[in-house]
Design a binder for these strands. Structure first.
Lengths: 220, 220
DNA sequence: CATTGTGAACTTATTCACAGCC
DNA sequence: GGCTGTGAATAAGTTCACAATG
């Protein structure tokens, strides 16, 4: 309620789905701010994103009290609160492994930078690429991964190599002390306890759509 | 049980999470086949993917009976069954809108083709790109979207344009009769009932990781 | 008086546990 | 003996509904 919000009532054991929605709220709040709105409400957010108002409020309730009864939420306040919750109230230094088609696209993706993610190093097995720069980011040899990760103080890794190499690359990143990994290879990699992992498989996303179509459903 | 499985006991109202896991099972089954396995089991699949064996069986039970008690699942049989369920037992003709960094990466992504998705046309607003081919796919003007979609019999659309244009492009795709859309723009677009939509936001995926890290959790 | 925050009711999803089968 | 399929039990997540509030 006050400018600096009360501490989270429940630090851990937040359902993953809540975290997903949280970053959706964040994105939507920014759009609403860009549209000139100073405040919003749980029902407005919910309507826009396809949730109920109660769900929006319950999700936020996991982390504290951010609203003003009778008024709603101040967009800038809630943006800051969610950024803090998601850990994006600071910069994160990120390494990319695999400078193929997808890797190059990720190097050029401005959305990362806007959310505070800094791609500060890239790695590839192809020696012809090593030493060159793409989008201002230097491509290093895979062999120097541990060293560069350490000197560059990199905390997150993005894996964009073929499926066959994904586990080995993941192991290297973990050994180099990375805290979390986003894996774009179409394979399930395993990481030790304590390392966070998210997988993105582009073909799988399309399959969600074809399932709905093949079974004549509507989805959101 | 028989080579041609019994019809699904429950056609509709399958939880979205089940469909997500289904395509994970499919991917894992293919890896196991590539490793030379003829059969697998719910516990093996579950262990590999981080689910319980009961969950694997329950998920499949939504659609019929595919296993052999005492034996497990024949990989090739189950792959075919899941492909049929997901609707990927045939080719799907797909259009890409937005040939920027990400769009070009998607055009070059071989995983789509492997799963039966054919990117047969691309569209962009930049007139300097129009008429050229990337990865063998011709780039058309946005204005000819409806016409090309129709003559090329395209059923799915992939949106890879900036956030500001995503809704307009989505509306055009819907108007052109597309059945489903995968949206890579960092904005929530709305589609009418009956059109299926999936959103992928690369920065959001990283936020799932930073949340876990900022709160010192381990995730899978 | 519109809107939040929240306990209680409800709904959905997951796990357990075991009968039946190979 | 090992494994599936499934009803029953448990857990998790969502919605309801309303007192509290600026």
């Amino acid at each position: 309620m006050s400018p600096t919000n009360p501490p989270p009532p429940d630090p851990t054991s937040v359902p993953p789905a809540v975290v997903h929605r949280l970053s959706l709220y964040l994105r939507e709040l920014r759009h609403q701010m860009a549209d000139g709105n100073e405040t919003t409400s749980s029902s407005q957010l919910g309507r826009r994103l396809g949730f109920t108002d109660a769900q929006v409020r319950k999700d936020l309730a996991h982390f504290g009290q951010f609203g003003h009864p009778g008024v709603g939420y101040r967009c800038d306040e809630l943006v800051e609160a969610i950024r803090k919750i998601l850990g994006t109230d600071r910069e994160w230094r990120v390494a990319l492994v695999g400078v193929g088609n997808l890797g190059r696209a990720l190097l050029g993706y401005r959305g990362f930078h806007q959310q505070g993610f800094r791609l500060v190093a890239a790695f590839d097995a192809d020696s012809s690429k090593i030493g060159s720069k793409i989008e201002g980011v230097e491509i290093h040899a895979l062999e120097s991964l541990a060293e560069v990760m350490s000197t560059q103080q990199i905390e997150l890794g993005v894996v964009a190599v073929p499926a066959a190499e994904a586990q080995a690359v993941t192991d290297q990143l973990v050994a180099a002390g990375v805290g979390g990994i986003v894996n774009f290879a179409p394979v399930t990699v395993t990481v030790p306890e304590g390392v966070c992992k998210v997988g993105v498989d582009l073909a799988r996303e399309l399959e969600q759509v074809t399932f709905a179509l093949a079974n004549r459903l509507r989805e959101t």
